[in-house]
Design a protein around this nucleic acid. Structure first.
Lengths: 223, 223
DNA sequence: CGCTATATTGTCACTTAGTGACAGATTCCT
DNA sequence: AGGAATCTGTCACTAAGTGACAATATAGCG
């Protein structure tokens, strides 16, 4: 059998004609950008799937293979911050307070110039989602997914079951306050507020979560 | 200018051919019932607007005049409990605790037999809304409307502005926990749980709201 | 009751969203 | 390069939802 270097001790998920996960995501993100731009410029109702597809250089049929419907095309943009937040919470050490963990992340955060343009789209869509009902549903669904993630994270941190009603209440309340603060900050930035004048948004979130969970989430926990 | 007897000191909203608000609502409710039944029996995707229209004896065109899209046909059913809850909170006296107010209402509550059948539909849709994404968006939008109502109610009770970020945080957290408890209770009832075995659902809600708002909402307030 | 102004409904034609099927192009692995 | 599987585009199709207009129903009034 000659060489065994190709031997997969780790299960090889790679299939013949499948394109990389990364490439898929980049296409979804590209669609999302264009959809966000069009929605912002001409409104959701006035934007057709054909326009979005053309802007990205895809056939309409392929567009619907990447997204179930028109509105969810902006889901990657709207979910951007939320997913980052969830990822951040997943690596939250048990012996650190939430506020410290968020602050420490904020310090080491580097601002990619390309990312910055994308953030602009995130803010625009978050603001637009307050008025446009079709986008609001996407925004709320995004937060619903965040809530489900927080259930797992909080259950783990509190060493309780994800089915525990208290855990679910904490996750729901925490997600809700984080969402409201996000909306508030987005609206302020859209109104032209100086980002530095907003003070410590993450600190505000940490405090709000602590309060909304009755103190259950935020402090360090033992082992 | 002749007679001024038709002069309307009180603005007369009644117009010639307009049908009563009551009648409109009854039709919407009727549509909602049938939509809920069909969605439950065959799923949302498999149910067409034509079927809903036929079930209630309307033309399809008229159906779309009552509801913007297929999914929102069940909105009246899904919003039922929430609107009742909001109405209840609107007449919450300042010198009474939330728990007492809810409990007192629960005691004087009479169970209309016709209403009971409707409640069954409410429970079914609430449960269905946990799995069916298309219904989940409607459910979340319903709760979003509840949240906005709570902002006004809480602002009034705390004698603060509805724009106050703290007020909005309290409303969001409160709505979130009430929603989760509703989902939980609906699931339990659907699973065949004895309604009496659920204990005091409203008391649980009152306590959850009190905690999720950091104690800001729940206790009696002065004047 | 019958008349009138106005709202509501149904029919028809139409645009757009979204899907299934199949052929051709593309991608990864060897 | 060769092959297996996936991805994409084209075509035909169903269903969602809307605008326009004629017919019908409703409330108020004499």
């Amino acid at each position: 059998m000659g060489s065994d270097d190709t031997n997969d001790t780790t299960k090889n998920e790679r299939k013949p004609g499948r394109m990389s996960e990364q490439r898929q995501q980049r296409i979804r993100l590209e669609i999302s950008r264009e959809a966000a731009r069009l929605f912002w410029e001409q409104g959701v109702a006035a934007t057709t799937g054909e326009q979005i597809a053309a802007a990205v250089g895809l056939s309409v049929r392929t567009l619907w293979r990447y997204f179930r419907n028109k509105e969810s095309c902006v889901e990657p943009v709207l979910a951007q911050d939320g997913e980052e937040f969830v990822a951040l919470l997943r690596r939250w050490p048990r012996d650190v307070s939430l506020e410290d963990h968020l602050m420490e992340w904020a310090m080491n955060r580097t601002k990619d110039p390309d990312q910055q343009a994308f953030d602009q789209a995130v803010i625009k869509m978050t603001v637009l989602a307050e008025k446009e009902p079709d986008l609001r549903t996407v925004w709320l669904m995004t937060n619903d997914r965040i809530e489900r993630a927080l259930v797992e994270i909080f259950a783990d941190r509190l060493r309780r079951s994800p089915d525990d009603i208290e855990v679910r209440l904490h996750a729901a309340a925490a997600t809700a306050v984080v969402r409201v603060i996000s909306e508030d900050v987005s609206a302020a930035l859209m109104a032209g507020a100086d980002p530095t004048s907003l003070g410590n948004t993450l600190g505000q979130m940490a405090r709000a979560v602590h309060i909304a969970t009755g103190g259950a989430i935020g402090d360090p926990v033992d082992p």
